[in-house]
């Protein structure tokens, strides 16, 4: 294909997209109007399953299969990062020297670690009730652990962070979501159908059927995935160097 022809193909495609987009935008309902056909159905379904956060009901019940896909994207992305950022043969590991951190900052980090951890778990546990859920809470939990890197140094973080264990946790979270889906199938209805557990009392922690369980699975997967992801980035940024000379140093 010549350059000129390619530009023509691009122009035709771009014009087509622009025309479709304009046509779709003209038919959109007015901003902030009263008519929400999809919203009303979603709210009705989430109330029927006693899930007070409709978004959680949409994500983990009405369209739980969608969320499985999203979870798998993160899983695959982290797997790819682990492969790309591994220590290659011409790189070696160096021990980072301890950092000097001002005392108040160190104290703040140590006090905030459990507070942030608790906040993350709270966000995961209340996913079916208030804004939040597995993804948001999982990220908060993972960030909380890295307060040790910010408040002390990388060695302190490495002591509480056996990466292998978090890799297992990442896979276990992903597997737990699938198993809950299959359990719905075995329980007599459909894959990921919310028919397994009693719906509980509206606006309490034990409500929404399988929604809190799926939230917990996603929370575990996301927290572990982010820890593994950051571990690879930290290794590369702090520890791994391209070895000069023989390349026969400590590392593989």
């Amino acid at each position: 294909m010549s350059r000129r022809l390619r530009m023509w193909v691009l122009a035709v495609g771009g014009l087509g997209v622009a025309a479709l987009l304009a046509a779709a935008a003209l038919r959109l309902p007015g901003f902030g109007g009263d008519d929400h056909p999809y919203g009303e159905r979603a709210v009705e379904a989430s109330l029927a399953r006693r899930t007070s956060n409709t978004i959680a009901s949409v994500n983990f019940d009405q369209r739980a299969f969608d969320t499985l896909g999203e979870e798998t994207i993160l899983f695959a992305a982290v797997l790819g990062t682990v492969v790309l950022l591994r220590q290659t043969r011409d790189e070696r590991q160096v021990r980072p020297a301890p950092e000097r951190v001002a005392a108040p900052v160190r104290r703040y980090a140590l006090v905030m670690l459990p507070v942030a951890l608790l906040t993350g778990l709270y966000v995961i546990a209340h996913g079916q009730l208030s804004p939040g859920g597995g993804f948001q809470g999982g990220v908060v939990v993972a960030t909380a652990l890295h307060l040790l890197y910010i408040g002390a140094d990388y060695r302190a973080l490495e002591r509480i962070r056996p990466v292998g264990l978090y890799e297992v946790g990442d896979a276990a979270g992903e597997a737990a979501y699938l198993i809950l889906g299959v359990a719905g199938l075995v329980g007599g209805s459909a894959f990921l159908a919310n028919t397994l557990l009693p719906y509980g009392t509206f606006n309490t922690l034990a409500s929404g059927g399988t929604v809190p369980l799926l939230n917990a699975a996603v929370g575990m997967e996301v927290a572990c995935a982010v820890v593994v992801l950051l571990a690879r980035f930290l290794d590369q940024a702090v520890e791994i160097e391209r070895s000069t000379g023989s390349g026969n140093d400590r590392g593989e």
Binding site: N53, I55, A56, V123, P131, G132, G133, F135, Q136, G137, V139, V140, A142, T143, H146, V226, L229, L230, F233, L234, Q236, A237
Partner: peptide, 22 residues
Amino acid sequence: PDVALSQLAVGSALTPLLILLS
């Protein structure tokens, strides 16, 4: 608010850390 919370969780500490480490 769910989307806002995702944005805050990822955007306030995680993304800066990834970028600055790179």
